[in-house]
């Protein structure tokens, strides 16, 4: 293929994947709200409610507060939504090849995940409101809190893959291509479950959901970071949250549940890709239900210092225990191999 052809196909894929990310992300939010409502004995809004909300926000007036920094205030939401979409381009969706999958690995994804959060911090500081300022500080503290456990998960998985002799262990395609559960022994499975728990707990913080939503805390900060945002800018932040929900689900699926339907049942190529995509979405919904919906309706909000303690002490320890178990498993596996 020529260079122009490659670039052209990448651009086409990018547009398609972005559109898919926006639509699927908004539907995910709708499913989340519906399930949460049913758990609270309510009927809840229809599944397309996030779309209605976005349409409503887009026709509303876009207010920039008097003491805000306009260029930063207005560009933050755009950066947030664009960077969330970019992450999606690196993550495998079912058996579809991700458009940029071969150009970046899990480390890059980890760094990219911080950009929407940083955009929100910048937007919050640029709002010029005490609530948004407090929210922005809290977002930074939360970010520092959850990055460490997340890094443990990523390193643990990649290191175990490398130990098993997988080439390019940080590439998401190789992680997805070699389901980790098949590689490890019984000790490693316990370690993996611990790492899975850590990733599940990092997810609500990445998406600023209860119990880790101190930066937006409705009853304390009246929306925190987003307090001054309205109209189109708020719509963009909502879109960014929607895409990030899909990204976090897809990341968990790619690392821990990468199996595809087509590898179990023989299907013609075209059907297989559609079936895999639907299966992938079902897995994402399941992951989101457990990590986001159930957690956010079943717990009270933490205080910001409790957030840090929970991540740095409790879940960092759980993550390290998982990592140690994986290492022990690898050592045992090698020993067994030698014997």
């Amino acid at each position: 293929m020529t260079l122009a052809g490659t670039i052209g196909s990448i651009i086409l894929w990018t547009v398609l994947v972005s559109l898919f990310g926006l639509v699927a992300g908004l539907f995910l939010l709708g499913i989340d709200r519906k399930l949460a409502a049913h758990m609270q004995a309510r009927i809840g809004p229809p599944l397309r409610q996030p779309f209605i909300d976005i349409r409503k926000l887009l026709v509303k007036e876009n207010i920039v507060p008097e003491n805000a920094i306009p260029w930063l205030f207005n560009s933050a939401p755009v950066i947030a939504v664009v960077s969330s979409l970019v992450i999606l381009l690196y993550i495998p969706l079912g058996s579809l090849i991700s458009p940029l999958g071969m150009y970046g690995d899990l480390i890059l994804v980890m760094y990219l995940l911080t950009i929407p959060a940083l955009a929100m911090v910048a937007g919050g500081f640029a709002s010029g409101s005490p609530y948004a300022t407090v929210g922005a500080q809290r977002e930074m503290v939360t970010m520092i809190g959850y990055e460490f456990p997340l890094a443990i998960v990523v390193i643990g998985i990649a290191w175990r893959l490398w130990a098993a002799g997988v080439a390019h262990p940080f590439l998401l395609s190789s992680i997805a291509g070699n389901p980790i559960w098949g590689i490890v022994g019984p000790l490693g499975i316990i370690g993996l479950i611990l790492l899975l728990i850590v990733l599940a707990v990092v997810t609500p913080a990445e998406l600023s959901r209860i119990p880790f939503d101190t930066q937006e805390a409705e009853t304390e900060l009246a929306g925190g970071l987003l307090v001054e945002y309205s109209g189109r800018n708020l719509a963009l932040f909502s879109l960014s949250t929607a895409v990030k929900t899909l990204v976090m689900g897809a990341l968990a699926v790619a690392i821990f549940f990468p199996w595809n339907l087509s590898s179990f049942v023989a299907m013609p190529a075209g059907v297989a890709q559609v079936a895999d995509l639907l299966f992938f979405l079902a897995k994402v919904v399941l992951v989101m239900f457990i990590t986001v919906t159930l957690v956010r309706v079943g717990m009270a909000r933490f205080r910001i210092n409790q957030v840090v303690t929970v991540y740095w002490v409790h879940f960092a320890l759980i993550g390290l225990a998982g990592l140690l178990l994986l290492m022990a498993d690898s050592a045992l596996g090698t020993a067994a191999g030698v014997l």
Binding site: M39, Q40, T219, V297, A300, R301
Partner: peptide, 16 residues
């Protein structure tokens, strides 16, 4: 009180 803590499910339950 539950709502102030961000625990809306408990709010819905007690009010029900």
């Amino acid at each position: 009180a539950a709502h102030e803590l961000g625990f809306d499910s408990l709010l819905h339950l007690t009010w029900r």
